[in-house]
Write a protein that binds this DNA or RNA. Structure first.
Lengths: 206, 206, 206, 206
DNA sequence: TATGAATGAGGGTTCATTCAT
DNA sequence: GATGAATGAACCCTCATTCAT
């Protein structure tokens, strides 16, 4: 076997270990909460030795950060892929479709929502994402900016608008799904979507 | 000394202990973070015996919940009091004044912001507030609803609008102050306030 | 029961715990060495809970320091008591008697010698001794100084002479007993005692 | 390249690795103490693989023993070399010159002194020295014995005298430099040197 | 010879909680 | 109600050591 092959095999093995730790941790964090999940639990369920954990992560919280960014990012990524299957005349329709997909996905996995809490926006803005983002796929950020330009939507600072939309969604949806406050999610959706349209089509005479 | 007086003194003593625990805990939570603050630390700094803690709170997290609601509420309460010193012709001006006061107060105490995180809205919506709210003071909620009615502002669901404003502020301001993302707070303020005006004066022809 | 009594009972209990920890630790340190003795071992053998250890000592090494001073001191203390039973015309005879007693005691407990190593002088000079020394008993230090004065022994700096004698004994005896270098202890003794006499009766024409 | 050369190169490489391990370990032991220095630390700083350590030493303590003997020996070796540059009429002057050189060297490197502790005499008496001593250089031991003979100094057991001088120095100097007890080293020196003269020129009429 | 990823035993330490006083 | 000494489970983390490459 060539040295090249050996090295790549070792590398594969390492990646596999890291992947296993991440997926096991996500499962446990969602199931029992971060506080009640110990490193012991994670390595036990992952079938990995205790010491090995520290070869990959400094502590539970570094793992948590990576996981938050990664998981949130996946929600955006999946929803965008889904949206790209269809054609939308209007940007607001497309954005709301994406957000609606994400909300439905969150409803379907309430435990993961409890893990993400109000930090969905990390999926777009976390610094931990650098590894994941060298993929050439178009995220919601690029999509939004591009379409604003193409369709001549009169937004002064589209990045800022998107940021506020995402934070608004992230924050209200968590409260609505988990605490059913101020309304259960299905009743809340129309209010939220109306507001999103407002933000995208801002026409403030001032 | 009359029995009454003795009882009231004992009661005072109890309230004093609880108050001491709360203030000490807030200080420690802000300074070192919740995770790194132990009950030991709290009772030590508060000058209270270990066992006594459990006469007042089930555990650290019950105390944390109370503290989150209480502290957030104080920010709103102070800002409202300040606003009531002046006269505002427009509701959006008044709301933005209040929110600006709160943001400035948060900037001044970044450690407390780190404790509150994105949960500022607990100051309005937490169930732990029942004790605090039997005061007859007008909060921002009542203020908002009343003025919408008085001034005939065409908002279909004013409660919903306020909820979204608060969550939007809570979420974006934390990120902006703590991580200076996407803009430092002073640069971000104009964008935020423009959006708040938009939400209050919504005129979406649809 | 009066509060006084209760408090003193608690105090007795605490002293008893500390005593137990010290004696157990000495036994284990002598038997297996410090490095191989864990706090677990100590509390286990002492029949005390793990957490309790930390109420009395910061760590294994604080305990070790106390123990070194205490144990060394006992050797001196016992030897002095023994010497005081007899009358000596000469100071050098008395000092050598004391040192001979100590050496014999060390020979009898080689494990304890391995623990003390070359630090026998801590029994006279350690700062950890303050607790033990408020006893009014005359140590070798006072004994030496007093007799030098009384007997007009022409020593310029008796403290310094004693210090060097003690360090010399401490250092050579360890090597001689443990490693039988350069001679086994019984053969080495005469050389050592001759040197001690020399130091006490210094008559250096210079 | 001739096989000879290759072999010698490999050998050089090996010696280089061992040398590197020793020097790195000495540095770490001095800096952080033995207990807090792990094999991990040593190989990391030495730039050598973990497994490789075990090709050279059984464990940290074997390395420590070698290092103690080696380092102590160097102090004697350097001081003797220095002394040989000059001519001394009297043996006691020469010995005191050597010891003074050693003490000054120790003062200059207090961390190394903390590592050596009271074991300076290992530089003369350790069994680990066999490798180093097949050099034909005259050590202090040979020097002392020879001169006693040559100068007809009336010492019955010169080896014993030297042993006691070395142990006395080793023990007192450590305490004096590190703990400044009973006197700081510079003030202690005259007392020590006076005693050394006494031992060399013993004239106890008894 | 040299490597360094993986191991998992074992250490120190913390801490919420109890309970006799 | 108040105390704080004692507990011991549970944690994190380090580390010497192994072994396939």
């Amino acid at each position: 076997m060539a040295i090249q092959e050996i090295k790549s095999k070792i590398n594969d093995n390492k990646q596999e270990k890291e992947r296993k730790l991440l997926s096991t941790a996500l499962h446990l964090f969602s199931e029992k909460g971060i506080k009640k999940t110990s490193i012991q639990d994670i390595v036990h369920d992952a079938g990995i030795a205790k010491g090995t954990f520290y070869l990959y992560f400094k502590d539970k919280y570094e793992l948590q950060d990576v996981l938050l960014a990664k998981t949130s990012h996946e929600f955006f990524s999946n929803a965008c892929k889904e949206a790209n299957k269809y054609h939308f005349d209007r940007l607001d329709d497309k954005i709301i479709f994406i957000i609606d997909s994400i909300i439905d996905a969150l409803i379907a996995r309430p435990n993961i929502l409890k893990f993400i809490q109000k930090n969905l926006s990390l999926g777009l803005y976390s610094e931990k994402l650098t590894d994941l983002l060298d993929s050439e796929e178009l995220g919601i950020k690029e999509l939004f900016i591009n379409e604003v330009k193409e369709k001549d939507i009169p937004l002064e600072y589209p990045e800022m608008t998107l940021f506020m939309i995402i934070e608004l969604v992230s924050s209200t949806v968590f409260t609505s799904i988990v605490e059913k406050q101020p309304l259960p999610i299905e009743e809340f959706k129309p209010h939220l979507y109306k507001t999103i349209r407002l933000l995208i089509n801002e026409k403030l005479e001032k």
